[in-house]
Amino acid sequence: MLLIPCPWCGPRDEAEFHYGGQAHVAYPADPAALSDEEWARYLFFRDNPKGRFAERWSHTAGCRRWFTLTRDTATGVFESEAGA
């Protein structure tokens, strides 16, 4: 059971959180201007690195805030990063 450092509530059991996948994938400013391929890339393609990965979490059973953390996917260890 990982302890995930919620920037507001402090470390809590991972069961209190919802995973939001890769961070910093912004909703395109003008989706209509994108080709089908560009739009599909936004919709369906995400990185899957072994090692450092910036990812989004939501403390769903706590303060309901979304935030971004960097985690080493090989070890599960978090580094702190500025919140969402």
Binding site: G20, R56, S58, R64, R65, A84
Partner: peptide, 9 residues
């Protein structure tokens, strides 16, 4: 959750 996600992020 969906609403909060769009609002917050």
């Amino acid at each position: 959750d969906w609403m909060e996600e769009w609002l917050q992020t």
